[in-house]
Amino acid sequence: MSRNAKINTLLIVLVAALAVLPLVLGLGDHKEEPFAGADAQAETAITEIEPDYEPWFSPLYEPPSGEVESALFALQAALGAGVLAYYFGLRRGRRQGVERERERALDGHAGPTAEPSGDVPGAASGLTADGESRTGAGQA
């Protein structure tokens, strides 16, 4: 593994550890409902401070069950992850394409003295891809 990949893996492991440790250490055990959402706790706190506060508006659409809700959250994460993966995949592909192009260009320039005189056109292009040498031979 390259040093780069090692650092990236370490970062991912650290994030995973930060998420898992509270569960492993049982940090939610003292709560009635361990690891509930902070927003639900805030709602409780509001009703503690102002017992007669009534929410004056309710969501237009509410997922009918926890399962549907988690599905929609997963959808949100999947959409985001998909776009991110597309971005990095596209970049990688483009970079490889440019790299290959350069290799070809550098190979072509390897014998610049022979190329302009045009003595053996097949020989110059023979250094590059197979397809090119074939077309070169066909024209000659």
């Binding site: 930060l18 998420a19 898992v20 509270p22 569960l23 940090l27 939610g28 055990d29 003292h30 709560k31 361990p34 690891f35 509930a36 959402g37 902070a38 706790q41 959250f73 997963a74 949100q76 994460a77 959409l79 985001g80 992850a81 998909g82 776009v83 991110l84 971005y87 990095f88 596209l90």
Partner: peptide
Amino acid sequence: TLLLGASGAFTFVLSALKIPSVTGSCS
């Protein structure tokens, strides 16, 4: 545009992940 989309996507992913925390609740 692509990188803008990727930045938005990063926000999308991260704000969908409810992660347990030291206080015993999730955010």
